[in-house]
């Protein structure tokens, strides 16, 4: 168990290291580092001074070491637009994105899991077929377009819900959250539903496939032979076996939710990291772009690491393998 953990940690560290190399090379070799790191509004003399200050006249390997050094301290330089450290600008936006992604995940699980369970247990019913057809639509509908249609229907035509921004927020644990106020919650509904759409279909289909596999297993039949109630068979025997793949997917997809929040945040004017990165790309705010990319890399690598550990804890069979 411990050895597996350490091995995974080393692998994760290696991946992060490799990604720093890719981002560094991408920025410094493919792109023009002068463009990327220096405010284009400066004049020639200022440029030269900044180039020297930033060490861009140094050999590449030395620059890379400098990059790593800054990285270790969380120093990506100041944002051109906000004039503050890039990481700080991103960190301020983090709660909004986390809140949105978490809400979307909860919605996807709360809707997708039961429906998938139902469609898997009773595949012949018409209602199950309707659910499956709906999930195909959920896969095919372009998320951003559905977002626009949400705005059109619920905000413009019906006027039920607001379509822009976070609304009123309340402070909790040192960050601002929308879900703590009525107004904020109303602002959260549409973006969260929009972001949840694709993942709901995914969880639904995975759950259904899992159920259909598990119900054929002998141990389900044996559980029936013991005279257990159907509710216990479904909620304990079947569900517990499903949890392993489903939790893996939920974990993996949480990262992808944060990545895809780029789209939803842009549509609903949600002031999170996703909207920030799009604005930054359009405004060429390079320090923020680099900081965002590196942050995502670290996020995804650690997420995979955590999922690995959860997997080990959930599945007693894997635990044994780890020992051996």
């Amino acid at each position: 168990m411990i050895t597996t953990l350490i091995r995974r940690a080393i692998q994760a560290g290696f991946v992060i290291f490799a990604m720093t190399l890719i981002v560094f090379l991408g920025v410094n070799v493919i792109g023009n580092p002068v463009d990327i790191l220096i405010n284009p509004d400066l004049n020639q003399a200022e440029r030269l001074r900044v180039i020297q200050n930033l060490g861009l006249d140094q050999p590449l390997w030395r620059q890379y070491l400098g990059f790593l050094h800054g990285l270790a301290q969380g120093n990506f330089g100041d944002s051109f637009v906000y004039g503050r450290p890039a990481l700080q600008v991103i960190a301020e936006r983090l709660p909004a994105t986390l809140e949105l992604a978490l809400c979307a995940m909860v919605i996807a699980i709360v809707i997708g899991l039961p429906l998938g369970l139902y469609a898997g247990l009773y595949p012949e019913r018409i209602s199950s077929r309707l659910i499956m057809t709906g999930s195909i639509l959920g896969f095919s509908l372009p998320t951003f377009w559905v977002g626009l249609m949400f705005i059109l229907l619920f905000a413009v035509q019906l006027g039920w819900l607001p379509s822009n921004g976070r609304g009123e927020t309340a402070e909790f644990l040192g960050a601002k959250w929308s879900f703590l106020t009525r107004d904020g919650l109303a602002h959260l509904v549409l973006p969260a539903l929009n972001l949840a759409l694709f993942k709901t279909s995914l969880i639904l289909r995975l759950t259904r496939a899992g159920v259909q596999e598990v119900v054929l297993q002998d141990f389900v039949k044996f559980a029936r032979a013991k005279g257990l109630r159907e509710s216990r068979i479904v909620l304990v025997h079947i569900l517990k076996n499903l949890m392993i793949p489903v939790i893996t997917i939920i974990g993996l997809e949480f990262g992808s939710l944060i990545a895809f929040s780029v789209v939803t945040e842009s549509i609903f004017g949600w002031p999170g990291m996703g909207k920030l990165i799009i604005d930054s790309i359009n405004l060429l705010d390079r320090p923020v772009i680099v900081a965002y990319l590196m942050m995502m890399v670290v996020l995804f690598v650690s997420l995979n690491f955590v999922i690995d550990i959860c997997y080990t804890l959930l599945d007693p069979r894997v635990r044994l393998d780890g020992k051996g």
């Binding site: 002998d218 141990f219 044996f222 559980a223 025997h237 517990k240 076996n241 949890m243 392993i244 069979r317």
Partner: peptide, 13 residues
């Protein structure tokens, strides 16, 4: 009692 003891017990309980 079933045929295959490897399959009749739920692996996660």
């Amino acid at each position: 009692v079933f045929q295959d003891p490897m399959m009749t017990l739920n692996p996660v309980l």
